[in-house]
């Protein structure tokens, strides 16, 4: 019986130290080597991603016709955001339903690129509908001019007396 007790005692010790025994055989150097290899790959893949973003911009959204709409939240905004619908010159161009993480990222100062498209130069009519819980809905419109360069419009959500404002960038 004493043997059994000793065996169990040792097992008890192993039970509270589950990972040490299993990890003991594995080389930490090998883990480190793999980690560094992954970091190198990340660096290369990120460089390609950047290159492709630039390629996409020049090919699909050249600066002469590019229009981009961004959404941000004013500091201290308590607006409960569910979704946004956007119409450009009377045409529905995009809508977005927000996740909790997206709203939180905007609350902390992140700016969402909601839409990128192409437009002729000239006067443009933008209409934004913001939706929130319990049937909240706010519609706002904005005219902006598209010149020779890209047109950037920031839609600022504040939730106050003017819940939606626009800034031409």
């Amino acid at each position: 019986m004493k043997d059994l007790l000793r065996a169990l005692g040792l097992a008890l010790c192993l039970a509270v130290l589950p990972t040490l025994a299993a990890a003991a055989d594995l080389s930490r150097d090998r883990i480190k080597g793999l980690d560094e290899q992954v970091q190198d790959i990340k660096q290369d893949v990120l460089a390609i991603s950047t290159e492709l973003l630039q390629l996409e911009e020049t090919l699909i959204f050249p600066s002469s016709t590019q229009v981009s709409l961004f959404v941000s939240m004013a500091e201290g905004s308590r607006l409960q955001l569910d979704g946004v619908d956007v119409r450009l010159n009377g045409q529905a161009v995009t809508h977005h339903v927000y996740t909790h993480r997206e709203v939180e990222a905007m609350r902390r100062g992140g700016v969402q690129r909601l839409y990128t498209g192409n437009l002729r130069s000239g006067e443009q009519e933008l209409e934004v509908t913001v939706r929130g819980p319990e049937g909240f809905q706010e519609r706002a419109s904005h005219r902006f001019s598209k010149g020779a360069g890209p047109a950037l419009v920031e839609i600022v959500l504040s939730g106050g007396s003017a819940p939606v404002t626009f800034i031409d960038r």
Binding site: S49, F70, R101
Partner: peptide
């Protein structure tokens, strides 16, 4: 705005897109 956009992705822990 583009720096803000990077923060937007980082805020969601989408660091690849942010970088």
């Amino acid at each position: 705005l583009f720096l803000g956009e990077a923060f937007y992705y980082a805020g969601q822990e989408r660091f690849f897109d942010a970088i």
